[in-house]
């Protein structure tokens, strides 16, 4: 299986301190990977560096054989991105929004692809709705349609089901699983919902204080920390982080 994303030695320091410290991240074609960690672990910065939006201080990123930043435009043709926190632009209907992104991805028939995508996720009735009229769950679903309509090799989802009802979240998981199975799409997802991660991901990468502290199948990772599931690993890492911050705060 070849790599669709290969990031090596990623480093990033902001004014407030080191955010990412030598992260290696590989996602193979068709693989479903979750990037996990407590708040401030460096997940979003790592994702944004992998997407070419934030420039790393050190390290390299390659997507579908295109090295960033030079090959960013060509690389992004193979990537879909959606985030639960991103709104839909105002003053656009859902159909217009999807058509625009379809054109940005070079689709010959963006309207057809948009309709197919909306039907796939059970929301064809939203095609004429204004972005501002949607619930947060509907916005998330439309964002996922946008990110999948061009048949990406790598789908990056940042907190995709954070605002979804359990039934809609299940619809999303089923749709994503079908996409990965039928098209061999690789998935890189971040989430704070460990139960969901165990259902979606076949491999998890745990970050803590900007470093990879575990990388493997969910059950193996949990066992490595002597825990029963990912939720417990997460809580363990979060408490460690809190303790280290507290200690640093006590230092003279």
């Amino acid at each position: 299986m070849s790599d669709v994303l290969r990031a090596r030695g990623l480093e990033k320091t902001y004014r407030r301190g080191r955010a990412v410290d030598g992260v290696d991240l590989t996602v193979r074609r068709g693989e479903r990977v979750a990037l996990l960690g407590p708040n401030g672990a460096g997940k979003t910065t790592t994702l944004l560096m992998c997407l070419g939006v934030v420039e790393p201080d050190g390290g390299t990123v390659e997507i579908a054989g295109h090295r960033l930043p030079r090959g960013r435009s060509a690389a992004m043709a193979h990537v879909g991105f959606a985030a639960g926190y991103l709104p839909l632009p105002e003053r656009l209907r859902v159909g217009e929004y999807l058509r625009m992104y379809g054109q940005l991805y070079g689709l010959a028939e963006p309207e057809t692809q948009a309709l197919r995508g909306l039907e796939r996720f059970g929301i064809p009735h939203l095609v004429k709705a204004m972005g501002t009229e949607l619930s947060s769950g509907q916005k998330t679903l439309v964002g996922i349609v946008k990110s999948t309509m061009h048949d990406p090799e790598l789908l990056v989802l940042d907190e995709p089901t954070a605002s979804l009802d359990p039934d809609v979240a299940m619809r999303v998981r089923t749709g994503l699983a079908a996409l990965c199975q039928e098209r061999g799409t690789a998935l890189l997802v971040t989430s704070h919902n460990m139960v969901e991660v165990e259902r979606i991901a076949e491999r998890v990468v745990f970050l803590s204080a900007g470093r990879v502290v575990a990388d493997g199948p969910p059950l193996e990772v949990a066992a490595r920390f002597g825990r029963d599931d990912l939720e417990e690993v997460f809580l363990h890492l979060a408490s460690e982080r809190q303790a280290s911050e507290h200690t640093e705060g006590l230092r003279p």
Partner: peptide, 18 residues
Amino acid sequence: MTAHRFEAPAHVPRGLAA
């Protein structure tokens, strides 16, 4: 959810994409 198969969409020629 409608059971739609995912199919590879057609793209415009590279020269037109920009």
